[in-house]
Design a protein around this nucleic acid. Structure first.
Lengths: 229, 229
DNA sequence: GTCTATACACAGATAGAC
DNA sequence: GTCTATCTGTGTATAGAC
C-alpha cells in the first residue's frame, strides 16, 4: 500500500466522524439541524487547528476563531459551551479516528513482520493525512485537565505497546534478532512522531511520507538484525 | 565518560551563565548589585520553567510567577521589561549554554566514530542536566516572534548538521557503511529529543540517561552497519 | 441559528511609598 | 530594590434582537 491509496479511504470516513462527535456532545452543540451542525463543526475545527497550531491554543482567542471561521462569537457558542470543551472535543475526535483506522488496518494481516511494517506505515500515513490533528494533540496535551490528559497518555502508550507486541511476535517467529523490544518500540515511536512534529523540515527537504516510512522501517529492521551486545 | 562526571562540569559553568545573561540585557535588568541580580534571576528562571512547563508559557500569569518566586510583581519587572522579553531571555540562555558545552566537548577528539558517539552522548547528557530548559525551548519555540524563532530553528538544524557531518566522516573513514547521512542524522535527532520530551515515560521505566544513550548509539551503529537497499 | 452589544473577570504593566 | 495599589486593555462568556 502507498499513501495515495490510504488517503482515499480516510477522506471517506471523515464526515461520519463529525456525526459521531455531535452524538457524543449533545449538551454542548445546541444546533439541531444535522447538516448545518456538521458543516459548521468542520469549519470550526479546521480553523481552530490552523490558528492554535500557529500560536498555541491558550494564545488563540475566540475573537481569532470568530475571524478565522467567519462566524460570530455568539454563533460559535452554539457549538461548544466553553473554550475548554472545544479543546476536549478536538482531542477526543483525534483519538477516536486514530484508534479506528489503526485497528481496521491491522485486522487482515497475520505475518508478524508484515503486521509490524503495516503498523508503522499506517501510523505515518494517518499522521500525514491528519497532520494538524496529530500536531495539536501532541503540543496541547499538557493543557488538558487531569482526566483528559490521562486518556491522552494512555492512547499514546497503547500505540507504543502495539509496536512492542508486534516486535516481540516477530522475534518469536525468528524474523528479528532478540532485543529489548520495549526500548526498540519507544525509539520507533520517537521517529514516527518526528514526522508530524517537524513537518516543515521534512517538507523543505522534499521527503515524501513513503520515503520516510521506508527509512524508519529500514532503521527498525537493521536494528533488529544486528546482534545487541 | 558517564553522566555523573558530566554533570559536575555543567553545574560549575552555571553561575557564569547568569552573569552573561545580565551583560546581554543591560537595559532590561535594572538591578545593579550583581550578586542580588544573579540570585534573583536564578529564582525567576527556575520558577518560570517550572510553571511554564506545567501549563505553558502563555497560560502562566505574572501573578503565578510572583507566587512561585515569592517576589512581588513590581520586583519581577526590575528583571525584565515585558513577559515577552522574559521568554527571549530564557531561549537565549538555553541556546548559548548548548552551543558552548557541545563545542568544548568535541574539541579534543579526532576519530570520526568517537566524535559521533561523543556528540550524541553529550547532547543527551546536557538535555538531562538541563531538562526543563530543553523541554521549554522545544515547546515554546512557535510562540517566539519571527526573528527569535528563526534563531531557534537554526540552532536546531545546526545540531542535526553536526550529526550528519560526523556520520559522513565516519563513512569516509570506513567506520560506517554508505547511507543517506542526512536522513540518519534526522532520525537520530528524533530519538535524542524524545529523551527530554517524554521524560515521565522513561523515568517511569527506570531508564537512566546512560542506558538510553547506549540504546540510541546501538541503533545508530546497527543502522550504519547494515547495507541500505 | 446567527447576529450585535455588553457584562465581568483577569491579564500585563506601572506609579509611588518605603 | 521591593512592596502595594491601581490603571487599562483584552479575554471569555452571555443576553436579547432579528
Amino acid at each position: 500500500m502507498t499513501y495515495r491509496d490510504f488517503k482515499k479511504s480516510v477522506d471517506q470516513a471523515k464526515s461520519d466522524l463529525y456525526r459521531e462527535t455531535l452524538a457524543r456532545h449533545p449538551e454542548a452543540v445546541r444546533v439541531k439541524k444535522e447538516a448545518t451542525a456538521v458543516r459548521n463543526l468542520e469549519r470550526i475545527f479546521a480553523a481552530a487547528l490552523k490558528v492554535a497550531n500557529e500560536k498555541g491554543f491558550a494564545a488563540m482567542t475566540l475573537r481569532d476563531l470568530s475571524a478565522a471561521t467567519g462566524m460570530s462569537m455568539g454563533a460559535l457558542y452554539a457549538y461548544f459551551s466553553s473554550k475548554e470543551e472545544l479543546l476536549a472535543m478536538l482531542q477526543e475526535q483525534h483519538r477516536s479516528v486514530t484508534r479506528r483506522i489503526l485497528e481496521q488496518a491491522l485486522d487482515r494481516r497475520r505475518d508478524p513482520m508484515e503486521r509490524l511494517r503495516a503498523a508503522v506505515r499506517i501510523h505515518l500515513y494517518l499522521s500525514e493525512a491528519m497532520q494538524p490533528w496529530f500536531f495539536f494533540a501532541y503540543m496541547e496535551a499538557r493543557h488538558l485537565p487531569a482526566a483528559e490528559r490521562k486518556k491522552s497518555m494512555e492512547s499514546e502508550l497503547a500505540t507504543e505497546k502495539l509496536f512492542e507486541d508486534l516486535m516481540t511476535e516477530a522475534v518469536a517467529a525468528g524474523a528479528l534478532a532478540p532485543r529489548d523490544c520495549r526500548m526498540a518500540a519507544s525509539l520507533t515511536k520517537a521517529m514516527v512522531q518526528d514526522w508530524y512534529l517537524k513537518r516543515w523540515k521534512h517538507a523543505g527537504r522534499r521527503i515524501t511520507v513513503d520515503q520516510y516510512a521506508d527509512a524508519v522501517l529500514d532503521a527498525v529492521e537493521s536494528y533488529g538484525k544486528a546482534t545487541g551486545h
